[in-house]
Design a protein around this nucleic acid. Structure first.
Lengths: 339, 339
DNA sequence: CTGAAAGCGCTAACAC
DNA sequence: GTGTTAGCGCTTTCAG
């Protein structure tokens, strides 16, 4: 168990150089002769020496560790996003430490611990609780990246998908298909993105709503995600004069809505109504849902996040990035029937 | 930016004690008067002092960091498992560092870096590549926990679900429903669990197979997961005398199979055939699949993993745990039609 | 380009 | 119970 680690001193002795020289061999920019470096690295490899990052961190006061906080992996978009984040960070030589934020108290503790590890940065994904958390880090001088989250924090980097364009697109599709009775489905305890999508949807339709040509209901479900959509369908589809076009805050909400509609109320989609989601999850492309949706690309978000982290120390001002979205037409929107 | 960190020395000075005393206040077991501890902690809180774990790690030679390697978050069971792992570890005061192992070269590098961070342990989930990885850690004296993976590593802790009981259960269900023409669907590049499930399924049916009462085909798909199931259905259901009972290595394979059957071949389930999965994913319970399956509970696996980690240093021998499974009867198995 | 010396912030022996 | 001393493994001035 105590198999004494090989240290830079060992390598130094073996190579007949000083510890400083060994140290310099393992950093990018150092005035050191190629020859020496080569020899030292070779010897290091032979004896299996690896720099002790812990010791290095202590003196450089920074690490390759990055905190990623999310409220679990329950939300399917969080899954694809975090997946992308992990691989992107890994490619940059950074290591993500995952924090679950579904339990706020637990999070508080973990966050403190993170700070103790001198994380290079902390990424907070949508859905995770109070931005007071972010503030804590800002005050600790740890750069914060907020993903699809409100921008109350002036000093945080912001990456947001283009909810406005997304919702405008959705509105356009519904109008072109002749839908005049619409609803936006979201949960009461919505994320920032969800709220914004609803607002922009309404905004895109404001003229038609004022003129009375379009009716828009903002539906707030008690629970979030799939179950929320399920609940909404059960309530909304009871009456015969229900909306014909449903715009859901997320694909996951749409799935719940569709499942309830099909399996509980015997509805057909898109014959009985049209529905549009947001995210474009892998599941949305499957035949079972085949959902028309607004795609926000996790890769783009991850890349933008990487950019934020890379510019740490270079840029003084935090970055704000808007990620483009794209309409993915599939099989859940049809022309409204003339009644 | 350089806002000098508050160190134990600062707290010591303020409290009028030595640095050792401060240090002792932040560890569980230390002969120190309650009074002193209370005062020190109070002062520490006031000035916002937090132990620098990096420095502590350097001397104690261990950290709260745990490596979790998986091949991405593509496999849906990996998602629920890792989710559970994260919350469990977090409750133990440990911090999971996630490594993506889908790219083997990349992984190699990351693994080395992990070692440099003195991780307390490393958890390797099913699906991740070569167990040479595990061996590396064992040689570095870092305890390894293998989840649903082969047990080539003598010195690694093993947590496996009870594939034998699971497959025996599946065989029993099919036989009781009168199915005699069966198939097991798995991918060519199967995980350890997948292979085992196939073997035990065959074993459970061996008597009937020998006597000619039952026919069992072992199907190996080119691709894995959902797409593999899809591919298998397309091939297998073409002929009219196709098997009537399909046992899939995972729920995800079953989903692909069902989708292809329903949406490409117009089949009805369970009218046209019966199907059983393995895992019991959240999706399996939804009306859209309503899949009869063998449940392995991620919570149980996470708990067993936690036990392994907790016994590090106490137990000299690695642990081997088998996690019980349970049949979840839903709507995808029916009595075979008499023809 | 390389080495010597000084310390990062902490804990672990060892005294008292 | 508490303080003193030493040192974890590394990087970083500062000389040369």
């Amino acid at each position: 168990m105590k198999s004494k680690n090989i240290t830079s001193a060992d390598v130094a002795r073996l190579a007949g150089v000083s510890r400083s020289t060994v140290s310099r061999c393992f950093k990018a920019d150092s005035r050191i002769s190629d020859e020496t470096r080569k020899r030292v690295i070779e010897i290091a490899d032979q004896v299996g020496y690896q720099v002790n990052k812990i010791a290095r961190s202590m003196i450089t006061r920074e690490s390759d560790l990055v905190g990623v906080v999310s409220s679990g992996l329950h939300d399917p978009f969080a899954v694809v996003l975090i997946d992308e984040l992990i691989t992107t960070l890994q490619k940059m030589g950074l290591h993500p430490i995952l924090l679950d934020a579904s339990n706020e108290a637990q999070l508080e503790i973990s966050i403190k611990k993170l700070a103790q590890y001198q994380v290079k940065s902390i990424i907070i994904t949508s859905g995770s609780p109070s931005s007071a958390i972010g503030a804590q880090f800002v005050s600790l001088n740890i750069p914060v990246v907020l993903l699809n989250r409100a921008g109350q924090l002036d000093q945080a980097n912001l990456v947001n998908c283009d909810n406005k364009t997304g919702s405008t697109l959705a509105a356009k599709i519904f109008r072109e298909a002749g839908h005049t009775n619409l609803a936006f489905i979201n949960s009461k305890s919505s994320t920032y993105s969800g709220r914004k999508r609803g607002e922009y949807f309404e905004q895109a339709l404001s003229l038609q709503i004022e003129s009375g040509d379009v009716r828009l209901r903002q539906i707030q479900t008690d629970v979030a995600g799939y179950e929320g959509g399920y609940e909404a369908a059960l309530k909304l589809l009871k009456n015969t004069d229900h909306p014909t076009g449903f715009y859901c805050a997320t694909d996951n909400v749409a799935f719940g809505f569709m499942d309830a509609a099909r399996y509980e109320m015997g509805k057909k989609i898109p014959e009985d109504f049209s529905i549009i989601g947001f995210d474009d999850l892998p599941l949305s492309a499957r035949a079972s849902y085949n959902l028309t949706t607004i795609r926000q690309c996790p890769k783009d978000i991850a890349r933008a996040t990487a950019d934020c982290i890379q510019s740490i120390g270079i840029l003084t001002k935090p970055k704000r990035t808007t990620i483009p979205v794209k309409l993915i037409p599939r099989g859940t929107v049809s022309r409204v029937k003339n009644s």
